[in-house]
């Protein structure tokens, strides 16, 4: 079959809602886009362990400590899961990891912000995981089988994280004056960075059209962002938290909540590596990777020796 025919057949399968599986033919560009997107996603899960891990040791009750440890552990699991899914595209986890800790590969910019108080942990659960769910619910319908299946599973756990974050934030927002202050302050700081998680506005998003055509995504960045804003406004009202946007108001004509100007300059600055925690995050991941080298070497050397011994024995 010539290239054009293969491409037409590929597009036909996608338009029919069929899933593309690892051994199926796919355009090079599709493979590359998926590797980029999925590995960014996996890196984000792993880097995301850092801001939250920052509060495990200081969690204010044993129950909260367990909840947070379990959540951070889930994120390691998500990272593993997505890395395995990317590996079906013919790359190795090691290559991908080295691309972000030494190279130019990206992870979600949201994790370049610091967690200053315990309320940040709650705000991350509610807002950041809430935003991730909006995005991942769409990705669960993605045309690439392994990615889609990993999203179905991950979404379930994220929903649980969101619920836990929201409930604890509600408790703080209705708690002592100090707790109220921490809760509102956390939301003030996390709101705009959360809206940026959906990526640049549609007219500045170079990859969107192609990803939609190939069924990797089914909605644009702005559509996803709007859907997140709409559902979050009511959740905030319910627990007495104010969203820090004076322009936020309901638009009867569109049936959506209009929101103010997102500080995109800040977004691009953080993408360029100049967020409050960018350097620290990479430093921490690099340190873990480098200090773990001798452990990984020992494990593979032991496995090699054991295999030799087993072969000799049989």
């Amino acid at each position: 079959m010539d290239e054009q025919k293969k491409l037409d057949e590929f597009q036909r399968r996608i338009d029919n809602g069929e899933k593309i599986e690892p051994k199926d033919w796919m355009p090079d560009r599709y493979r590359k886009q998926l590797i980029r997107m999925m590995s960014q996603h996996a890196h984000s899960e792993v880097v995301g362990m850092l801001p939250e891990g920052n509060w495990i040791e200081r969690a204010p009750s044993l129950k909260r400590k367990k909840v947070l440890l379990a959540k951070v552990q889930d994120e390691a699991g998500h990272g593993l899961y997505i890395y395995s899914a990317v590996e079906t595209l013919g790359v190795t986890r090691r290559e991908l990891v080295e691309e972000y800790i030494y190279g130019k590969a990206k992870y979600s910019s949201i994790f370049n912000y610091p967690t200053l108080t315990y309320a940040d942990i709650c705000a991350i659960g509610w807002l950041v995981d809430g935003a991730a769910i909006v995005n991942q619910t769409m990705l669960a319908k993605s045309s690439y089988g392994p990615y889609s299946r990993s999203m179905v599973r991950i979404c379930k756990e994220e929903s649980f994280h969101k619920k836990q974050g929201y409930e604890m934030l509600a408790k703080m927002a209705n708690g002592t004056p100090e707790q109220k202050k921490m809760a509102q302050d956390a939301v003030n700081r996390w709101w705009w960075p959360t809206l940026m998680m959906f990526g640049p506005p549609d007219d500045e998003s170079p990859n969107s059209a192609e990803l939609i055509k190939w069924g990797v995504k089914s909605k644009t960045n702005d559509e996803l962002r709007q859907s997140f804003v709409d559902r979050t406004v009511m959740e905030a009202k319910k627990i007495g938290i104010e969203l820090p946007d004076p322009d936020l108001k309901y638009n009867k004509e569109t049936g959506h909540w209009d929101y103010g100007e997102i500080p995109w300059d800040e977004f691009w600055e953080v993408i360029r590596g100049n967020g409050p925690m960018n350097r620290e995050r990479i430093r921490a991941r690099r340190k873990a990777y480098e200090e773990g080298a001798w452990v990984r070497e020992a494990a593979s050397e032991y496995a090699r020796k054991k295999k030799l011994r087993d072969e000799k024995a049989s």
Binding site: E57, A76, L80
Partner: peptide
């Protein structure tokens, strides 16, 4: 729990957590 996010390999991060 101090290992969380700092393990030598994701599998170990999970196990230690």
């Amino acid at each position: 729990s101090e290992w969380s996010g700092h393990g030598p390999e994701l599998e170990e991060d999970l196990a230690l957590a």
